[in-house]
Structures are given as C-alpha cells and as structure tokens.
Write a protein that binds this DNA or RNA. Structure first.
Length: 564
RNA sequence: GCGCCCGUGGUGAAAGGGAUAUCACGCAGGCCUCCGGAGCCUGAAGUUGGGGUUCGAAUCCCUACGGGCGCACCA
C-alpha cells in the first residue's frame, strides 16, 4: 500500500505545491470504506490558497486527470477522496504476498544493525509470576519484529542473579532451610524462606545486618556463599527453562547481573575518572541535577547496586554488539530509574547513550492491590499457562474430538491465548489479573485468530489455488472481498509501526481486524462453491490471508495450528 | 509534599489533531440439510467534570476529581 500512497503523493505534488513526504503524512484512510481508500484533507491548503478547504477539494477533484491507478477522485466537503482501481490494487497486493522477492511485510531497513533487547530478566530464587509474563512476551515479540525488518536482534535475559536479596536468602537458608525441600520444590522453598525472612526481620533488625553481611561475602568471593548461590541459581534456572519452553522462547544470552561482578570495579573506576562522582554519606554517587535524585553507585558498606551492574552491562553490550538500539523491556514503575541510569551514561560522555531506550509497561495487579513476592502474594505464570492449556484441551475434546495430536494443539492454543491476551492491549496500561478474563477464548482473542487461520487451512486442504493461475483483479467485486484485500495491504505498515513504537499490540490489533474481515468474507462469499475464475480468485485471497495471519501470529510469538 | 502514568457504552479495550468515535465481553433477538458455530448478522448502550489552544480535540495545554506508580544505600 505504501507504493500507492507514494503514487498519490506524486499526483498531488504539482497541484498542491506540497512536497511528497508531507502529502504522505497527511494522507489518511477515510472512516467509511465507501468514501474511498485514501483521503487527502485540504485544511492545510486553505491558508496558502486563500480559499475554503471544501472549495479547494472541489477544484482539485476537477483538475486531476485520468490515472492508471485511480478509479475515481471525488471531493466530499474538505476532503479529496481517492478510490483505487480494484484490479490494480488486488493484483499488486496478492502478487506481492504470493511471489514477492521477499516475504510480505518484511524489509531490509535494519541493514543488519544490532538491536539488543533486554527482556524477561526474572529474579533467581523468586517465583516466575504472571507479572513477568509481560516483559517476556513483549520482548520476545519485539525480537521477532526487528529480525523481520532486517535488524540483528539480540535477546538478552538479564537474570536477576545478584544483589542484596541473595544475602537475605543465604541467611534465611542457613537458619531455616532444608536441603530436601530445596530439591523437591526449589523456588517454592526459597520463596517460603524469603517471606519468613521478611516476617522475622520486623521483629529482629539484627537479621537485616546479617543479610548485608552475606551479600558482602558473596561479592568478596566467599566459598560457602558462592556455593549456595550457585545452587539456587542452577535450580531456579531449570524451572525458568520449563516456562520458556512452554512459551517457545529462547534467548541469545543469559548473562545476568552476576556476570558483571568482576567488571564492576573497572566500571566504577571508569565513571570516577570522568569526574562526575562524589562521596556522600559514605556512598559513591553521581549528581543528576535538580529534577532527579542522585544515582548511587556504591553503598556505604561497599556493596554495589543494581544500576552499577546495569551500567557495566551497557558498556559491555556496546563493546560487543555496537548496537544501533538498546531496549529495556521493564515495568513502568522503573521509569525514574531508567532516566537516572541513562543520564549517567550521558554524563559519562558516551555518544551512544541516547540509543538506549526504556520500553515500559503497566503493572499486573489484583483487584485489591498489587502482587508482592515479599508477602507471597503471587500467581505463578506456570499455573496460568497450565490452566489455559487444560481449558483448551477440554474445548477440543468437546468440539473436535477426532482431532489428531490434541495435546500439541491444546498447548498451541492455550499458550497462544495467554500471549495474545497480553499483547493485544497497549502495553502502558495496567492490567488487573482476573482468571475469568484470562481464560476467555471468545471474541478478540488469540484463539479467534488461530481459528480463522485453521478454517482457511481447512478450505485449502480441499482445494488449493492453482499455482499458475494469474491474479485476476477484476474478479473481486463483493464488499467483503474489497475490505479483506485492503486489510491485507496494510500489513507492512502495521509491522513498521509496531517496530517504531515498540508496540506488538499494533500487530495484534491488525490481526483482529484481519481475522474479522476474513470471517465476514467467509460468511458472505462462498469459495469452494464458486465457479471458474471466481473460485480461483477466492482461493487465492484465502491463501494470502492464511499467509498473513500465520506471519502475524509468528511475529507475536504465537503458533498457528492448521487444525484445532 | 513533589513528580510521572492512566481515566472512552454495564465491563475490557481501539482510534497517527481530522468526516457519522471502532471493536469485544455481557445483554435482547436471529443464523448450522450451507467451505469448521472458538463463527456470522441485527439491536440497545459511551469520550470523568470545568476551562483553554485550533478551521477542527478522546487525542495538545491548564485545572478539579478518581485510580496507579515513583521519589539515595531494594531490584
């Protein structure tokens, strides 16, 4: 569709006196399809032409001559509406999907430049809760989207495997831990210890001191501390892998916070050398100006902080990947933190500091308040995923009992529902956790998209479009066909926009619209019962839709079963 | 106290400053001798209040209200 916009811009360039890019930005899609495919609002011209916009639209409509591309140009009030020739439109879009030089919607705009995406990053020794789902699926989808656009995406799981809380965990384990329980249910046991630690800490402030002590031991390389830490880490990671496998997610790197431990002294020295640090109340800080609290690099007890490791990681990543962009998919509760972090990079004089970007998302919360690991108020992601798969298993047993390989499909659909449920809304909004809602598979959901895809596959199993049949644009005359065609044409723009805004939701919304357009087509335009050319044309349209649905789901990290 | 984010039908959401605000759930009706009813069709129902900017505001600014989050030794 971009090329059509371009051509309309060329046509308008002369008569309006605006330049091409400006026109493309102004061009919009009319609210109702029978008005046209594109509209050019003439308000902007009123001043230069010293006439009313409606008058200008009328004049322009009269001036524009014949074009091989356009069926009609008309004015409607202040708008100039363009109707593309159906045949040209259909042939362009469908042939692009069927036999384009590159996969439809993909591009080479990334030119192989690196985009490092820091996502998921769960904390070791803590449960993988539903809250972590967001970072995990948004980051994974962005990884696929950037790859699709020709970037070299690098997915990094910056594991929370270092920090003061490990001092607490070690202390708690030494006091009340059980090896047997740890083996049986590692994270469950560690969580229980962590919760108990915070309970007892309130009565006994001495505990906090002990926790600090053990973290310092860890940073100084104490054998006993390191061994325990290593055990916790290995056991936790094994559990996390189980979840990533369910979700179908892999990372390019698992270098967590601990990886940077041995580099921290160097990192701190580097920052000190820039002359931007000072001592304050025994801690090492960087002042960030009036509108932000200072950034602490080192606590008075000598231990490092989260940001120290993040700065170290950023330096390391730039050294290794020379990224064009570094994304941090982390909750919106950390906006201030990232402002501080990036400001330090800037003050360090790093020219790539502004390539770093926080991609925030809203919190998952309960009706009655936020989730809290400390209080043990969490819902395990694995439990959610398992329930979704179970539900989809039951639905299959009821609706499609003869389906082969039901277990695989149940997993694809159940997991797809959860992922889509998260990605379909703007990431910045908070979400309220609700079992009923998360397990609802009707309406604007992942299964709806998958179901539409499976239906097309079912048609195509009965008869595939002939490989040599030409695309016949004149065949499409029903309004459902037109709508579907136009929607197919919007896919590349949706992918680009999703990348520009770092919002997979753009693609999710696009797919909802596409699936709806297809279902309307399906109910109003018989495919297998159509005849001759029309049948071929409709098979082709269905096939193209199948391709785009599957591709779009892939970009979200969701599978597209052929039967369900 | 200061700062940031979010307020759209009953509920959950969409909308690149533009035309008659778009969907879904739920609700009321209808559609399987018909390519898969996890679907389709019809209907009722909405931009938190008040100012402003603009030819034009759900969108930008101010303000009030409601909700969330954050504000140096957690991550």
């Amino acid at each position: 569709m971009e090329n059509f916009k371009e051509q309309i811009a060329v046509i308008l360039e002369g008569p309006t006196g605006l330049d091409r890019e400006e026109i493309k930005l102004l061009l919009e899609v009319p609210p109702s399809p029978d008005m046209g495919d594109y509209a050019f609002p003439c308000f902007r011209l009123a001043r230069t032409f010293k006439k009313g916009p409606a008058e200008i639209a009328a004049k322009l409509a009269g001036e524009l001559g014949e074009s091989p591309l356009l069926a009609r140009v008309s004015n409607a009030g202040p708008y100039l509406n363009f109707v593309l020739k159906r045949s040209v439109l259909a042939e362009d879009i469908l042939s692009r999907i069927r036999e384009g030089k590159q996969v439809y919607g993909s591009s080479s705009r990334g030119g192989g430049r690196a985009v490092v995406i820091d996502f998921s990053s769960p904390n070791i020794a803590k449960p993988f809760g539903v809250g972590h789902l967001r970072s995990t699926v948004i980051g994974h989808s962005l990884h696929r989207i950037y790859t699709f656009l020709g970037y070299k995406a690098v997915g990094i799981n910056h594991l929370g495997d270092w920090g003061t809380q490990f001092g607490k965990t070690i202390t708690a384990y030494k006091k009340w831990g059980s090896e047997a329980q740890l083996k049986r249910d590692p994270i469950g046991h560690l969580l229980q210890l962590y919760v108990r630690f915070h309970d007892e800490e309130e009565k006994d402030p001495q505990l906090e001191e002990e926790g600090r002590y053990w973290f310092r031991q860890l940073e100084e390389g104490n054998r006993e501390a390191l061994d325990l830490w290593q055990t916790f880490r290995d056991l936790s990671l094994r559990e996390f892998q189980r979840i990533y496998r369910l979700l179908g997610i892999e990372f390019d790197s698992y270098q967590g916070e601990s990886f940077y431990n041995e580099r921290l002294a160097g990192t701190i020295a580097e920052i000190v050398n820039k002359g931007i640090t000072r001592e304050s109340q025994g801690a090492l800080i960087v002042d960030l100006g009036e509108d932000m609290p200072p950034c602490l690099l080192r606590k008075k007890d000598g231990a490092t902080l989260y940001v120290t490791r993040d700065i170290s990681a950023a330096l390391y990543r730039f050294e290794h990947y020379r990224f064009a962009k570094a994304l941090y998919v982390v909750g919106a509760d950390q906006v201030l933190y990232f402002k501080q972090f990036f400001k330090v990079l800037k003050l360090m004089g790093l020219k790539w500091a502004d390539r770093c970007q926080h991609v925030p998302f809203g919190l998952v919360r309960f009706k009655d308040g936020r989730m809290s690991t400390r209080k043990g108020k969490v819902i395990l992601l694995e439990e959610v995923l398992n329930k979704a798969v179970q539900l989809s298993r039951e639905i299959i047993a009821e609706k499609n009992p003869s389906l082969e390989d039901q277990e695989t499909v149940a997993r694809q659909v159940g997991i797809g529902a959860i992922i889509f449920g998260d990605l379909s809304n703007d990431r910045i909004k908070d979400v309220e956790f609700d079992w009923e809602k998360i397990l609802d598979f009707s309406g604007e959901t992942g299964p709806y998209i998958q179901y539409s895809h499976a239906r097309i596959c079912s048609i195509l199993r009965k008869e595939a479009p002939s490989a040599k049949a030409p695309v016949m644009g004149e065949a499409y005359t029903a309004k459902e066909e037109e709508a579907l065609l136009l929607q197919l044409g919007r896919f590349p723009a949706a992918v680009e926009r999703a990348a520009d805004l770092n919002k997979p939701s753009v693609i999710a919304r696009y797919l909802i619209d596409l699936a709806r357009d297809f279902n309307q087509f399906y109910h109003h335009c018989p495919v297998l019962k159509a005849e001759g050319d029309l049948k071929q044309a409709r098979l082709l349209l269905a096939d193209a839709t199948r391709e785009v649905l599957a591709r779009g789901l892939y970009l979200l990290g969701i599978e597209a079963p052929e039967k369900m």
